[in-house]
Simulated assay, not measured.
Amino acid sequence: MFFTILFIAVIFVGLVVALPYFSGLTTLEVDKKTRQQQKNLEKKQQQQQQHQQQSYGYVPPDEQRRLEEEQKQAHSLKARASAFKDKINVTSEDIPIKIKLNSLNNPTSTLRNRHKEKLDIDNDPNNYDYDLDELIEEETNQAKVDQETEFYKHETIGKDKEEMV
């Protein structure tokens, strides 16, 4: 069951990556420098800085004890667990394949080209596309018609005068 779900997930991820690539919407770039290599480089630089800061003369006993405790802590179980935790934490920077849209590189692309349109807006309250008097008259006529239909809805119109009385 687990392998079936894993297989379906791999196919789904493959489709999500492959379809835009084959349709020409995206490009795939392989990043050769991973985050782990960058971390190793930073650690080496920090170690070089610490090595340069150390003095080669007399070191007091309390300083020696502190350095020994730091070394023990670096090799302890907690340090190994935190290092393992850092290795497990995977981000988008760790993935060596980068997906980029073609429209960002190509200004002539028709993919989501949205230009801001300048609308001709008239903010003058005296200029309207309609006449307010006509709107008021239409509303009152409609209200009269509605009132008459409500008033005469129970009446039967069109019969003889004698039947209506």
Rank of each mutant, 00 (worst) to 15 (best):
Y56S: 12
V59E: 03
K118E: 15
S76Y: 07
E42Q: 13
K116L: 14
Q73K: 14
K39H: 05
L77G: 02
K153C: 06
Q47I: 02
K85N: 11
R80F: 14
Q71D: 08
F7E: 06
D120N: 15
R112L: 09
D120A: 14
H115D: 02
F12D: 10
N40T: 06
N40G: 07
P60M: 00
T34R: 02
V30I: 07
S23V: 07
S82A: 03
K100A: 01
K85R: 13
Q53V: 02
Q64M: 07
A83F: 10
E63F: 03
T27R: 04
M1L: 04
V165P: 14
K153A: 15
E29K: 09
K33Y: 06
Q71K: 15
L104C: 07
Q52K: 12
D86T: 12
Q147I: 03
D62I: 05
I11K: 06
K44N: 09
L6W: 10
E155N: 09
L67W: 09
R112S: 05
L104Q: 07
R114K: 11
N89W: 12
T27F: 01
Q147R: 12
E63Q: 01
R35M: 13
S55N: 07
E117W: 11
H75I: 05
R80N: 14
S82R: 11
K85H: 09
D133Y: 03
H75V: 02
L135V: 03
L41W: 10
L77I: 15
V165W: 13
V10F: 08
L77P: 02
S23E: 09
G158Q: 10
P96F: 01
L25W: 08
T149G: 09
Q48F: 01
T156K: 05
V90A: 00
Q38C: 00
K116Y: 08
K118P: 01
L15M: 03
L25K: 13
E134D: 06
N127A: 15
Q47M: 01
N89C: 08
N105H: 07
I157L: 14
Q52C: 03
Y21E: 03
Y56N: 12
D160P: 00
E137P: 05
N106E: 12
E138M: 08
A83N: 11
L101T: 08
T110Q: 03
E138T: 08
L6G: 11
P61W: 04
K118Y: 13
L67C: 05
P20M: 05
R80K: 13
N126D: 14
R80V: 14
I99F: 07
R80M: 06
E163W: 09
L28I: 01
E63T: 00
L15C: 03
N127T: 15
V17W: 04
E155L: 12
H51L: 10
L41T: 01
I157H: 12
A18Y: 00
V145Y: 00
R114E: 11
T27G: 04
I95K: 08
E63P: 00
R65W: 02
Y128L: 11
Q147D: 08
D122Y: 14
